[in-house]
Amino acid sequence: MDWLLIVVLLLFGALFVVAEVLLIPGTTIVGLAGFIMLTVGIWLSYRDLGTSAGHVLLGSATVLVAAVVWIGLRPQSVNRFALTTKNTARVDDVRRPDVAPGQLGRTLSALRPAGTVLFGDERREATTLGEFVGAGATVQVLRIEQNRIVVAAA
């Protein structure tokens, strides 16, 4: 029964260290728990199985952990898990609208007081000063306020 507990502690300790180095980067509770399990397993092997078995398990655990750390921290291993692509997407700046005051457009939906207006080929959300404008009507841009296009019936 003693050897079974030692094997379980060493196995789970090694698995936790592997998970810490390869899957969960950083110093977290998983790596600490794995190190504690390995330490307790090695200490129990010295106590219950004798000095020679303790030396063998200590050497094996040291070689295993060193190999895992060396493999896990190589640049090739890190690049498999690291984000290496660049995000080149952009967002149109609302403060520089493509609709100018005085421009004419056609409503696609009724403006009560907000709705959709077609300016050339571009659909934009627009608002009126409070009046209702039916769908299909021609409207003129009065002004641009922050991110709102204010229109009136033309």
Rank of each mutant, 00 (worst) to 15 (best):
P101R: 05
L11K: 04
S45R: 09
L83P: 11
T28V: 07
F119P: 05
A89R: 14
A33W: 07
V21C: 05
D121N: 14
L22F: 13
R112P: 13
L49N: 13
F119Y: 06
I144G: 10
T28G: 15
G136F: 08
G54M: 03
T88A: 06
D98A: 04
L142H: 15
T39Y: 00
G13H: 04
V117N: 02
G102A: 04
D2K: 13
I6L: 01
I144D: 05
L58H: 10
E131T: 12
T62R: 09
I6P: 09
I149N: 06
G13Y: 01
A100T: 11
V94K: 14
L9T: 06
G120H: 04
P97A: 00
G134P: 13
V63E: 01
V63F: 08
T85M: 10
R148M: 11
A126H: 07
N79D: 10
M37H: 03
A53Y: 00
T116R: 12
G34A: 05
L4V: 15
E125P: 07
A19M: 10
L22S: 09
E145W: 10
G72R: 08
G50T: 03
V8Y: 06
S45V: 04
S52Q: 15
I42E: 01
V8A: 14
M37R: 06
E122Q: 13
L142V: 15
F12R: 01
T138D: 13
F12E: 02
P101A: 01
E122T: 15
S60V: 13
T51M: 10
A61E: 02
L73C: 08
G134N: 14
T127F: 15
V99Q: 07
G34F: 07
P101W: 00
G54C: 07
D92M: 01
R95E: 00
L57K: 09
L64I: 15
L111I: 03
I42W: 00
P25N: 05
L64Q: 03
I42N: 10
V17R: 03
R124A: 12
A114C: 12
P97F: 00
A19H: 03
V56N: 07
G13S: 02
R90T: 11
Y46T: 08
T28P: 07
T128E: 03
R90E: 02
